[in-house]
Amino acid sequence: MKILITGGKGQLATEFIEYFEKNGIIVNAFSREDLDIRDFNKVYSLIKEIKPEIIINCSAYNNVDGAEREPYLACKDKTE
């Protein structure tokens, strides 16, 4: 089984990665610096290249106060 995880440096992703690796499952984890999920073309290309059976999105915009002050940032598309 091949798994792709976004938000690879975060707490949730770290737990998933540890669990899967302990169980001999191939994990391809990408941090925000490696894969900006707002970039559709890059995400699409990576999925075509890796061909994961499962994708787990652990990416999040977690600046709650910032999202309340500037909600457009929480929903911003990279092309904007």
Rank of each mutant, 00 (worst) to 15 (best):
K2N: 14
I3D: 02
L4D: 03
L4G: 05
L4S: 05
I5A: 03
T6P: 04
T6G: 07
G7T: 05
G8R: 00
G8W: 00
K9H: 10
G10R: 01
G10S: 03
Q11V: 08
Q11Y: 11
Q11C: 07
L12P: 01
L12W: 01
A13D: 01
E15G: 14
I17F: 02
E18D: 13
E18Y: 09
Y19N: 07
F20L: 15
F20M: 08
K22W: 00
K22D: 02
N23R: 13
N23D: 07
I25M: 03
I25Q: 02
I25S: 01
I25W: 01
I26T: 14
I26E: 15
N28K: 14
A29W: 01
S31D: 05
S31Q: 05
S31E: 04
E33Y: 11
E33V: 10
D34M: 12
D34I: 06
L35Q: 04
D36T: 03
D36L: 04
I37S: 05
I37Q: 04
R38P: 06
D39S: 08
F40Y: 12
F40R: 12
N41D: 14
K42L: 13
K42R: 13
Y44V: 05
Y44T: 08
S45N: 15
I47P: 06
E49S: 15
E49R: 15
I50C: 03
P52D: 13
I54S: 06
I55W: 03
I56Y: 02
N57H: 12
C58T: 07
C58N: 03
S59I: 01
A60M: 09
A60R: 07
N62D: 08
N62C: 09
V64F: 14
V64I: 15
D65C: 08
D65Q: 11
G66C: 05
E68M: 12
R69M: 09
R69S: 08
E70A: 13
E70C: 10
P71D: 11
L73A: 05
L73R: 13
L73N: 09
L73H: 08
A74D: 02
C75K: 14
D77V: 10
K78C: 11
T79L: 15
E80S: 14
